[in-house]
Amino acid sequence: MTDVTLLSAHAAYRDDIGDLVTRRPVPGPGLEQIGAFLFLNHHGPQTYGANNRGLPFGPHPHRGFETVTFILEGSLAHTDSAGHESIIRAGGVQWMTAGRGIVHAEVSPAEFKRDGGPMEILQLWVNLPAALKMRAPRYVGLQADAFPALTTGEGATLHLVSGSFAGHAGPIESLTGVFLCWAELAPGATLTFDGLAGRDLFLYAVRGSVKVGDRALPNWHLASLSAGDTLTLHADEPTLILFGHAAPIDEPVVAHGPFVMNTVEEIRQAYADYQRGTFGVAEIVAG
Rank of each mutant, 00 (worst) to 15 (best):
D3K: 13
D3S: 15
L6H: 08
A9P: 01
H10D: 03
Y13E: 13
V21G: 06
P29K: 13
F37N: 12
F37M: 09
F37W: 12
L40W: 04
H43C: 01
Q46H: 10
Y48F: 15
G64W: 02
E66M: 08
E66I: 00
T67D: 11
T69S: 14
T69R: 06
S86Q: 13
G91Q: 05
G92P: 07
Q94K: 04
Q94Y: 01
G99M: 02
G101H: 06
A110M: 05
F112R: 13
K113Y: 02
P118F: 04
M119D: 03
W125C: 12
V126L: 13
A130C: 03
A131V: 05
L132Y: 05
K133F: 02
R138P: 01
Y139E: 08
D145M: 08
L158M: 09
H159K: 11
S164H: 12
A166W: 02
A169M: 06
I172G: 06
L175H: 12
L185P: 05
D194E: 15
L196K: 09
L196W: 04
R199L: 12
F202M: 09
F202C: 10
Y204F: 11
G208V: 01
S209V: 00
G213P: 05
G213N: 08
D214W: 02
L217R: 09
W220K: 14
L222F: 06
S224D: 12
L225T: 08
D229N: 11
L231V: 04
T232C: 14
L233K: 13
L233Y: 11
D236L: 07
D236Q: 14
P238A: 12
L242W: 07
G244K: 05
P248M: 10
E251I: 00
P252R: 04
M261L: 15
T263C: 09
T263E: 12
E265Y: 04
E266T: 02
A270V: 00
A272P: 04
T278N: 14
G280L: 10
A282L: 07
I284T: 14
